[in-house]
Design a binder for these strands. Structure first.
Lengths: 248, 248
DNA sequence: GGGACAAGAATCCTATAGGAATTGACAAAA
DNA sequence: TTTTGTCAATTCCTATAGGATTCTTGTCCC
């Protein structure tokens, strides 16, 4: 398993410019968590990462602290770092309730503002998704990347950096993706995204708000149904066997 | 200036237990920013802090990275750390728009939930404020502390940790306090708080939501009025002369 | 056979040193 | 008078070492 090329980042061999080691460790660890190479609730040893990246322990510590600020790892003082555990049903409820507070408002704001209207970018994003589906690559990862970009475009167009930052801090797509690696209702998701994009493109504020609300309701319904049926057990089973150690 | 006792934290002389230096540096720096000893947009040199606290530079770096995650300092790579600059009118608008999204919902949720109803705690908080007003101490700081606790109680009672965390990350009270150190409408604030507390205590969800919305509207109106009249100039003038260096 | 204690190993956290880059000033030329 | 080039000082970032704490493993006793 250690010999796997791990297409995450560069091998980091003959480059040690000033002020870059910490950023590299941050990028690599973040990518590893996003790609699922680091299972939820898995220990992260500092010197293992430092040996793997061939850098010292100090930049690794800095990267882990930044990741802790992003709620991607947790640190028990004196016991080291671990990736954040999986979300339970209650936390999933809380996450979607927050999205229900923020995103319908963002959709309405984006639709009302005619200069910053993201309708064209949303349409391009949907076309790109339809084109890339059926090609090579992991379908789940494709869907999550599309979902992140789609909702990120709407939040960006809403024009409120505070709301956007708060939304990004939750990493809702990442958490739901870690919970349910299976494709859940990808077709329905695309349809609902198309409805939202159409309402925004038509500058229909009320329609965009309603479409986004419906989308979040339905999305939570899909996730919760999968969780209570078999998702919870499957996630538990997966978390019991770590998929890949970080090094050695 | 260096001889001022600085009642922020312990002198940190004869204590160096494992795993505490970083936490101490974090607490001291955070308190200094909250108390205004560090002006907005002021440079923070690492070794100055390390000499002042008589610890090494490594825990100071860790504390600064945590503060960066809290949006209290910003770091230019290769150029060091600074406290976050003052908010402009546009950012103040964004901040209050976010509060308008979150807090009325929180007030309604807190009022509807009869078990977690914070009415008694809110009443106690208001009584404590009325009692401490007129006593010694800084009035501004007293008001900000009360405001933070009051809104924090409501967010806590809403029972959504995601929303609560997102709200706390904005540090809205801290930023507005840094913008306007003068007491602005303290009496009106207390009155509006009393209305919110009464509605929540009566389990009146719609009333609590409306009262909170009015409160945020009025609060933004007060701040914006002060900003456009003289606050902006006063804040600019203050930021041009640093109030106190961190050491030496 | 099961449980408890102890020793060893592993790991984390802090301290210190050194290299590299940026900032500011001063002088010279256009 | 303005601009530019060089130099020095300060400061940041990384690397390495050591002390303190926790986890694991082996052995002994009940």
């Amino acid at each position: 398993m250690t010999a796997r090329p791990a297409a995450a980042a560069a091998p980091a061999a003959a480059e040690s410019p000033r002020g870059k080691a910490a950023a590299e460790a941050y990028a690599v660890l973040r990518a590893m968590i996003l790609e699922g190479e680091l299972a939820p609730d898995e220990r992260i040893t500092i010197d293992a990462v430092s040996r793997r990246l061939e850098i010292s322990q100090t930049p690794v510590r800095e990267a882990l602290q930044r990741l802790e600020g992003d709620n991607l790892v947790v640190s028990s003082p004196g016991r080291g770092y671990s990736t954040t555990p999986l979300l339970g049903l209650e936390e999933l409820r809380a996450l979607f309730e927050f999205r229900l507070l923020v995103e319908p408002w963002a959709a309405r704001s984006a639709a009302v503002d005619r200069l910053a209207n993201p309708g064209r970018a949303l349409r391009a994003e949907l076309d790109a998704l339809e084109e890339s589906v059926g090609a090579d690559g992991d379908l789940r990862q494709l869907l999550v990347a599309h979902d992140t970009r789609f909702h990120g475009l709407i939040l960006e167009a809403a024009g409120n950096p505070v709301v956007r930052h708060a939304f990004e801090q939750t990493h809702c797509h990442l958490h739901t993706f870690r919970l349910y690696p299976a494709d859940i209702g990808g077709d329905r998701t695309a349809e609902e995204h198309a409805e939202i994009a159409a309402a925004i493109w038509a500058c229909d504020g009320a329609g965009a708000e309603a479409a986004m609300s419906r989308h979040i309701f339905n999305s939570f319904d899909r996730f919760a149904r999968a969780y209570t049926n078999d998702g919870g057990l499957a996630a538990l089973e997966r978390s019991s066997r770590p998929r890949m150690r970080v090094a050695r």
